[in-house]
Write a protein that binds this DNA or RNA. Structure first.
Lengths: 221, 221
DNA sequence: AAATCCCTTGCAGATTTCTGTAAGGGATTG
DNA sequence: CAATCCCTTACAGAAATCTGCAAGGGATTT
């Protein structure tokens, strides 16, 4: 899991449980929160200079103005500035915005790694998103109809067949026998084991229960 | 996947890419299209007589009249006639109708296996529906508010906790330890085993994989 | 031709799941 | 009080999952 994460969160956002939840659910050693874009950028700069750079930036989009002067006034500016000095930095945007077109633009132009909508399940989704991004995948809150990210997770026909059968309650032995009967190859139990285990890594699942839950939620199976 | 599928589609419907998309996405060996109910029924008859019956019928509801005389004038009549001669035939209805009550009636009286609304995502949904029906499940386009199939089995808070943790990839031993830590009782692995096994019966699940898939699909967890 | 890589398969073992039996405690009922 | 029921728990054994290691084959590269 990520060791060093920076959270830039408009302090008016209210969601101040984020840090605690993330600390508890994931095991991130260093997780700092900043309420202003400028301060967040400074932190990134210092960390980079000291050769202990942040690995992930989680940022809001909207930062409401207050009495403090500021240069960076939005999450997009923060992302641009951050990527300018640390191009490999991974970025998750966590905001209220739910316009697919705008979110799509974030992926296209800012190359963000995930977008999580602030909603009832926003925190759970954020945890998922971090895990996905850690495994070099993208993530978008399911309620966002972003047909751009539809093909992000490619499951070939063989994977699909196995997963659907597992979700239907078949054991791997039964799936193996079924494949042999249909003269489909590969069909050994061992290979099925391997295929599924590989999917654990790809989707950041701990076991088959977890994998099935994730894929069904994502509408993949 | 289905080997032999018949598509009855009002030719005014316009959606003539259906056949190509289905052929490409799924791997159906024989996929024929008919523009008239009567011709579709004839095809079913002939196939059955030659001992190579169709496995799935996908039909529209509304077939607009033109110069050709016809006996069957709607999808419902086609379904009734088809089922009369081949009761095991699976049926997916693909139409513009979006009245939940009418769609509900199709499930109740015609025992159709899936209903897909013709809409922007209709084709994608149709692909999903075919896969679901192939696995002996039903499917309804998500935009249809069909709270009919509510087998209201009560899940109490304790069941929910266990199920969510399982779906999150925790083992029963881990759940047991977590409960002990939180001083929640009961908390033994044995009791958790029993609780989950009881849910197998209630929800007709073969094992935990199956149960999780069902409950996530049903939006329970 | 040899080396290399990738995929498939078998096998072994540790862990987990699933099912059944049995024992004990608390609450209810006769 | 005794009988009964229900819930919790322990335990045991069979089946299934999960993770390694190793062997073999086919395709590609050197």
């Amino acid at each position: 899991m990520f060791k060093k994460v920076l959270l830039a969160e408009d302090f008016q956002g209210g969601n101040h449980g984020i840090v605690e939840v993330l600390r508890e659910k994931l095991h991130i050693e260093e997780l700092q929160e900043e309420l202003y874009c400028d301060k967040a950028l400074t932190r990134l700069k210092v960390a980079l200079k000291n050769h202990v750079p942040y690995e992930l930036l989680i940022t809001d989009l909207l930062f409401v103005a207050d009495h403090i002067d500021r240069k960076l006034t939005s999450g997009i500016e923060l992302i641009k500035a951050s990527r300018a000095l640390q191009p490999t930095l991974k970025v998750i945007v966590n905001s209220m915005e739910d316009n697919p077109v705008k979110i799509n633009t974030l992926f296209k132009e800012q190359k963000i790694n995930a977008y999580v909508c602030k909603s009832r399940h926003g925190l759970t989704e954020l945890v998922n998103a971090i895990q996905e991004v850690y495994h070099n995948r993208t993530f978008v809150s399911p309620q966002i109809n972003l047909n751009v990210a539809d093909n992000v997770f490619e499951l070939d026909g063989f994977d699909m067949m196995i997963l659907k059968d597992l979700a239907d309650g078949l054991t791997k032995k039964e799936i193996s026998e079924k494949l042999k009967q249909q003269k489909i190859t590969p069909n050994s139990e061992s290979t099925i084991d391997k295929k599924v285990s590989r999917l654990f890594d790809e989707f950041g699942a701990k076991n088959t229960h977890h994998l099935i839950a994730k894929l069904v939620r994502g509408g993949k199976i």
